[in-house]
Structure formats: C-alpha cells, structure tokens
Amino acid sequence: MDTLMTVIKKEKDFGILSEYDVAEELYKACKLKLPHAYQLLIKMVQKIENDNRGILEMLETAVGAGSPLGKDFLQYFGECCWDEQDAAKALEVYRFELEHGIAGARVKIGMVYDELLEDHMQAAHCYRLAFQEGDEAAAYNLAFTYRYMEPQDLLLAEKWFEISVKRDKYPHSLRELGELYVATDREKIGLLMIKQADQQIAKLIDEW
C-alpha cells in the first residue's frame, strides 16, 4: 500500500482524522492517481453513507462525463457489490459498464447469474453473447458452466473447452478438457493434456 494510504489509516486509527477527513484526503490521492486510493475511498464512502444507490449514481455521472477515473471507481464498486452478494446492484453496475463499452462487462453479468443467482442457463446465454461479440475468454466461462451446472451437459462443455484452448489458449481450459477426456475413457491423451496444462500454469505463476 502507498505510504500516504498507510499514514491516513494510522491517523484514522488514532482518531486524529474523522471519516470525512479521511475521505477527503483519499479523494485528493485519487486525483494524484496514487495506488489503492480509489478502492479505499469507495470503502470509506460506503461506510459513511451506507448508500449504494447514491454511490452508483455518482459514479454513473462521472463515467457519463468521460472520466477515466470514474470507470476505475465503477469497476471497483461492482466488485464491492459482488463481495456483499448484492446481485441486483452488481447487475446494475455491470449493465451500465456494458452500455459504456467497458471490457468484460457481459461476462461479469453472466457470472452474477451463474454464481449469485444460480441461473445457469441465463449465464450461458450471456457468455455465448460475449463470445460472439469478440470476448474469446468467455468460451471458458461457458464451458465451465456446462460442465458443472445441474444437469451437466458434458458434450457442450467439451466443445467449448476445445474452443477456448484453440482461440484463447487458456491453460485451465486445457486442464479441464484433459479431465473430461480421462472421465470419458480417453485417459492417455487426457493425462497428457493435464500434464501440459500444469506446466503452462506453473510457468504463468513463475512469470507473475
């Protein structure tokens, strides 16, 4: 965390600054584009106002005015709504992102349906649309949904994992595909896929 953020936190802990003072200092830090400032500001505003509706309206206004920082705020606010399991508010945020062309918004909508609302067919529809719109990473989400939803559709899962491997070259797709092969009497090639995927994943972790 940036030094300024640490100082602000310590001052707040000792009671030197009020919550409003901290929010004001964080806002200044945001304007200077200091690391982690906008995440902390949103959390502080949420704590002070306890008003997701007001925060969202403020962020929508900022994005509508063309503020790049507003987009950052908006995406982080969506994550906050997700963490709070607020599906309705998360959907509202992600739909607004979609309207404003923010990358990955359609997949995020699908994930809300998939994981928070457990409407897997609607999630699959969102992922398929996202893929058709050019988000090749959505193939993995679609395949994963088909594999693990109830009831499963392993044929479609295999198809979309194969597409993900070919188009997005996502190693987790290769691993999932290998596991499907092993489970359907294609053990030799499946184990080879799993080995290759694990090597690719380990390499990514090392590079990260």
Results as ranks from 00 to 15, higher is better:
Tyr146Trp: 06
His125Cys: 10
Ala138Gly: 02
Tyr146Asp: 00
Arg128Leu: 15
Ala130Arg: 03
Tyr146Gln: 07
Pro151Ser: 02
Asp153Ser: 12
Leu154Phe: 05
Arg167His: 12
Ala138Arg: 03
Phe131Asp: 07
Asp168Val: 10
His120Trp: 02
Arg167Ile: 14
Lys169Cys: 04
Glu162Met: 14
Glu133Cys: 09
Leu154Tyr: 03
Ala143Ser: 10
Gln152Trp: 09
Lys169Leu: 04
Phe131Val: 09
His125Val: 06
Glu158Cys: 11
Phe131Glu: 12
Glu162Asn: 15
Ala143His: 03
Leu154Pro: 07
Met121Arg: 14
Asp135Glu: 13
Cys126Trp: 08
Phe131Arg: 07
Gln132His: 05
Leu117His: 01
Ala157Lys: 03
Ala143Leu: 10
Lys169Trp: 00
Ala123Met: 04
Leu154Arg: 07
Glu158Tyr: 01
Glu118Ala: 15
Asn141Lys: 10
Ala130Cys: 09
Arg147Glu: 10
Lys169Phe: 01
Arg167Thr: 14
Cys126Arg: 01
Arg147Gln: 12
Arg147Ile: 05
Glu158Gln: 13
Glu136Asp: 11
Ala157Met: 01
Thr145Pro: 02
Asp153Arg: 15
Phe144His: 10
Asp135Gly: 02
Leu155Cys: 11
Phe161His: 08
Arg147Pro: 00
Glu158Ile: 08
Asn141His: 11
Ala130Glu: 00
Glu136Leu: 13
Lys169Glu: 03
Leu155Phe: 07
Asp119Ile: 06
Tyr148Gln: 08
Glu136Gly: 04
His120Gln: 08
Ala139Arg: 02
Ala138Phe: 01
Ala138Asn: 01
Leu154Asn: 03
Ala130Met: 06
Met121Lys: 14
Leu155Arg: 14
Tyr146Leu: 05
Leu117Met: 07
Leu142Thr: 09
Asp153Thr: 12
Tyr148His: 14
Leu129Val: 12
Leu129Gly: 02
Tyr127Thr: 02
Tyr146Ala: 03
Gly134Ile: 08
Ala137Thr: 12
Phe144Asp: 00
His125Gly: 03
Leu154Gly: 04
Gln122Gly: 12
His125Ser: 11
Phe144Leu: 08
Ile163Trp: 05
Ala124Gln: 09
Gln152Arg: 15
Trp160Asp: 06
Ala139Thr: 04
Glu133Thr: 09
His120Leu: 06
Ala157Asn: 00
Ile163His: 12
Ala139Lys: 02
Leu129Phe: 06
Arg128Glu: 13
Thr145Met: 13
Phe144Gln: 02
Tyr127Gly: 05
Leu117Phe: 00
Leu116Gly: 04
Glu150Asp: 08
Met149Asp: 00
Glu158Trp: 00
Trp160Tyr: 15
Met149Gln: 11
Ile163Gln: 14
Met121Ser: 13
His120Pro: 05
Phe161Arg: 08
Gln152His: 11
Ala157Trp: 00
Asp119Ser: 12
Lys166Tyr: 05
Glu133Tyr: 01
His120Ile: 01
Ala130Lys: 03
Ala137Arg: 13
Ala130Phe: 05
Trp160Thr: 08
Ser164Asp: 05
Gln122Ser: 13
Asn141Phe: 11
Asp135His: 04
Glu118Arg: 15
Ala137Trp: 00
Asp119Tyr: 01
Gly134Val: 07
